[in-house]
């Protein structure tokens, strides 16, 4: 019985380990949280790594003791079992030490939470609305608003048995027709709501997600450091096409943003929410498929 166990462990364990480890070496971003591009997202990443390392250390100690015991204190080695069954001192120690670690962890977590909660001093405000199944963006007081949907290439490829290889599509399922353009080094307040059901606007590079709830407006904020294109997704189950309403943020320099905004304000008619009739290809296909 022992040999079965050992042989099975070795063969399957090695197979499993090989499968698990080899692609992991390729890219760190495929196995860990992004540090993101804001001060807050880096603080969140820091909390994540701190608590992770704490659990690793505790794990090494506890599992170390456990495996030492499994190898040393086994009947086949002829040991006689001890008789002890409690120790008040030890039990107090291993109640108090975790408590102290938790308090030490709660302090920085509280700091970050308090900071994230403060939506004052914003230089501009963007209203985000979740729809089944696309996003609406409105630049408050700027008279610019538009809807942002899954791009048509992804939409064609994602149909059941489309025959299109997802890998052949540029940014499959994480590309949109109109990006949310934002300026860098600007404190931006988000007002997030839902039009039909609850959605959740998640942009990993900003460090957070926030639920978009019909009838309520949630506030949060960000301040992006680096220009770039950042991709996120809806995170709250919102119906059939929950998996197909990506988010793309394009962060640009302040003056480029102003130029973009001015251009948009010139062409508001074309892009305003008033044109949100069911003429878009992706929405038609959704409506047909959902019956």
């Amino acid at each position: 019985m022992h040999t079965v166990a050992v042989r099975t462990l070795l063969s399957l364990g090695l197979l499993g380990l090989g499968l698990v480890v080899s692609p992991a070496m390729a890219d760190y971003s495929l196995i860990n949280m992004t540090q993101g591009v804001t001060e807050s997202s880096r603080q969140i990443y820091g909390l994540h790594m701190t608590i992770f390392m704490i659990t690793v250390v505790i794990g090494v100690l506890v599992f170390g003791a456990m495996f030492y015991s499994i190898f040393r204190h086994r009947k086949s080695r002829g040991v006689k079992p001890a008789k002890f069954h409690h120790s008040t001192a030890v039990e107090i120690v291993w109640t108090v030490i975790p408590f102290v670690i938790l308090v030490a962890m709660a302090v920085p977590a509280t700091k970050v939470l308090v900071d994230l909660d403060d939506t004052s001093r914003a230089e501009m405000t963007v209203k985000v609305t979740g729809y089944q199944w696309f996003w609406g963006y409105e630049y408050i007081d700027e008279d610019v608003q538009f809807l942002s949907r899954l791009d048509t290439d992804s939409d064609r490829a994602r149909q059941l048995d489309s025959g299109i290889q997802p890998a052949s599509v540029d940014n499959y399922l994480q590309n949109v027709d109109k990006r949310l353009v934002l300026p860098i080094n600007t404190r931006i307040r988000f007002q997030i709501t839902g039009a039909d059901v609850i959605h959740s606007w998640w942009m990993p590079d900003l460090g957070w997600k926030k639920d978009a709830i019909p009838g309520f407006v949630n506030e949060t904020w960000t301040n992006i450091d680096e220009p770039g294109v950042y991709r996120g997704r809806c995170a709250e189950l919102c119906g059939r096409d929950h998996g197909f309403m990506p988010i793309v943020v394009e962060a640009v320099e302040k003056d480029a943003f102003q130029a973009w905004l001015a251009e948009r304000q010139g062409g508001v008619v074309e892009d305003s929410a008033n044109t949100a009739t069911i003429d878009d290809e992706s929405q038609v296909s959704d409506a047909v498929a959902a019956r």
């Binding site: 506890v62 003791a65 456990m66 015991s69 204190h73 009947k75 040991v79 291993w94 975790p98």
Partner: peptide, 21 residues
Amino acid sequence: AVPTGVKVFNWVATMWRGAMT
């Protein structure tokens, strides 16, 4: 985490210096 930790520690302490099969 505190009471849950106590449980895990107690299980490991039960194994400790036992005669396991």
